[in-house]
Every structure is written in structure tokens, then in C-alpha cells.
């Protein structure tokens, strides 16, 4: 039996959509700075890119706080169980209308592949982008009479890391946009991220949520 479940809470949705807007905007302004095309004008592109970057960092800070205060960070713990089944689903099962091998629940929203990819984004790609981005903004050429340790002799490595990260993010977005359509129905995933509610298979786990949640809150 299927039941409407409130799966994405308001901050989570706000975080997701703000982040997606910022990533698109950072990509547009960033690749203009990279010399790929002209649209905003170089000086504006730099200005907007920096404002968006600060906004993104602030958003990340709040998202980290939210993930830890709600315990949602556990969603991204990688698991190897079911990973083969998940791969098989995307490569074979999906074409035969087989059911999703991983049950989506409030406590486990992500399938094993999603867990791996999102964890990779969170601990590798985004940190590389933020750190190289901050260095890009605050690097200082060697100057006389200043603290030598802060000096950056060349922008090259910083810029190349930042660029490579951007290419990866774009590839991620392409795959992400397509995979949205591979939910229970073509639109069920996007609807859930907009409204927060998704029709999920009702089974025992779902019932256990309430007591667990209460327990966690008591512990806090």
C-alpha cells in the first residue's frame, strides 16, 4: 500500500533549491571568467561570482549545522549492501519495469549509489571548490615585509583545480537531472523535492519512525 509521506522538510528543500540555483549561477559566471563565453561582462561576472560564492559558503555553513542538528548526516553514510542490485537496476531492471531494489524511507532516502555520489560531492568536490575558490579570492602575491606563509607564487594550480571541479559539477548536474526521471514515476522525485511529500511504499519501517524520532529528541 502507498502512503503520502513528508520526506523533505522545508529547510532541506530551501537548501536544495538555493544550492541548485547558486551552482547554475556560479557555473554561468565562472565559465565566463574562464573565458568560455561572454554574457554578463567580465567585471560583472567576477563580481556576481564572488557574491554567489559567499552566499554558497553561508548556505553550506547552515546546511552543515542542519545536517548535524537533525542527524540527517547519517543519510550519507556509505553502504556496500545492495549496491550491486542498484547498479543492476539502472543497467537492466529499469528497462524491464522492475521495482526499485532500495526502498525509499524517511530514514533512508538515498539508495547506495546516491549515498556514494552525494558523499563524494560533500567531502571531495564541494570542499575542493570552496577551498580553491577561497584561495582564488584571497591569494596574495609575494610582497615585501608581509607574512611569507600566506603567499601564493602562482594562481595556476588553484585555477586548474577550480576549473576541473567545475567540469565535474556540470557532469554531475547532467546525470542528476536525468536521474530525477527514474523515480517511481517520471515526476515523482521532482514533485517530492518541491512539495516535500512523496507516495512511498508503506511498510513496517515507516511506522517505527515516530518512536525513534522521539527517542533522538529526548537524547538531545
Amino acid at each position: 500500500m502507498k502512503k503520502q509521506v513528508y520526506i523533505y522538510r522545508s529547510f532541506e528543500r530551501f537548501w536544495h533549491w538555493t544550492q541548485s540555483f547558486l551552482i547554475f549561477f556560479l557555473a554561468a559566471t565562472g565559465f565566463e571568467i574562464h573565458g568560455s563565453f561572454q554574457f554578463f561582462g567580465y567585471q560583472n561576472a567576477v563580481k556576481y561570482h564572488n557574491i554567489a560564492a559567499y552566499s554558497f559558503i553561508i548556505l553550506i555553513a547552515f546546511a552543515i549545522f542542519w545536517h548535524f542538528s537533525t542527524g540527517e548526516w547519517r543519510q550519507y553514510l556509505p553502504t556496500l549492501s545492495n549496491i550491486r542490485a542498484q547498479i543492476n537496476f539502472y543497467l537492466i531492471g529499469i528497462f524491464k519495469n522492475s521495482p526499485h531494489p532500495t526502498k525509499k524511507t524517511v530514514l533512508s532516502k538515498l539508495n547506495p549509489l546516491q549515498r556514494l555520489v552525494y558523499l563524494g560531492l560533500k567531502i571531495l568536490v564541494i570542499p575542493v571548490m570552496v577551498i580553491s575558490g577561497l584561495l582564488y579570492m584571497f591569494y596574495r602575491y609575494p610582497q615585501k615585509g608581509t607574512i611569507q606563509a600566506l603567499n601564493v607564487e602562482s594562481l595556476e594550480l588553484i585555477a586548474l583545480a577550480h576549473t576541473l571541479g567545475a567540469f565535474f559539477l556540470i557532469a554531475f548536474i547532467i546525470a542528476h537531472l536525468y536521474l530525477i526521471t527514474t523515480g517511481e514515476t517520471i515526476t515523482s522525485n521532482i514533485k517530492a523535492m518541491i512539495t516535500g511529500y512523496e507516495d512511498l511504499e508503506s511498510h513496517d519501517e515507516q511506522k517505527e519512525i515516530e518512536p525513534t524520532e522521539v527517542k533522538i529528541e529526548k537524547e538531545i
Binding site: 571568467i33 573565458g35 602562482s154 595556476e156 585555477a159 576541473l164 567540469f167 557532469a171 547532467i174
Partner: peptide, 25 residues
């Protein structure tokens, strides 16, 4: 003798990046 945004790029990074995007597409 220096890297300047927009003017300069690494052909390796550029090719790798475009290849990743192309393969994903």
C-alpha cells in the same frame, strides 16, 4: 610567464573536463 584567468587554461584540464561532460551526456 604567469597564469591569467580567461587568457590561460590547461589543455589537459580542458580536454578531461569536456570529455567527462560528453561521456555523461
Amino acid at each position: 610567464d604567469f597564469y591569467m584567468p580567461s587568457r590561460d587554461y590547461s589543455p589537459i584540464v580542458e580536454t578531461t573536463g569536456k570529455l567527462i561532460i560528453l561521456l555523461t551526456l
